[in-house]
Design a protein around this nucleic acid. Structure first.
Length: 103
DNA sequence: AGATTGACGTATA
DNA sequence: TTATACGCCAATC
């Protein structure tokens, strides 16, 4: 096993790709599930079009601005298409749509 | 090789 | 809810 940071990105991508449909997950949770806590920021960097990046949100249940303008709106549309609902303030109920939640 | 800055976040006040 | 502090990575000088 290589101790290279590439392994971290690889693990992150693997976790993000495993997020079930209709669910969302925060950067910190993904990093933790990948086995690398505290690497939340690295998760956001590693998101690609090959991954369900739109299922990834911040810990506040909100959509974070990406490098490309318009993604914020696109993310909401994609999530709504999967059954995820947004609050009036644009927040998602982690207890209903959060991944691996206890209810 | 070493130090500094920037970043798609999280936690706390 | 907003603002501040913190920690980790990657790129740059």
């Amino acid at each position: 096993m290589k101790s290279d940071s590439s392994a971290i990105r690889q693990a992150i991508r693997d976790v993000v790709a495993r997020i079930p449909q209709g669910c969302v997950c925060s950067y910190g949770d993904i990093a933790r599930l990948a086995g690398y806590p505290r690497h939340a920021r690295l998760v956001g960097r590693c998101l690609d079009d090959t991954l369900p990046w739109y299922r990834v949100i911040n810990h506040q249940g909100r959509i974070s601005p990406r490098g490309w303008n318009g993604n914020d709106e696109l993310q909401r549309v994609l999530l709504e298409a999967e059954g995820v609902e947004f609050d009036e303030t644009g927040r998602i109920d982690c207890r209903r749509f959060g991944w691996q939640n206890t209810g």
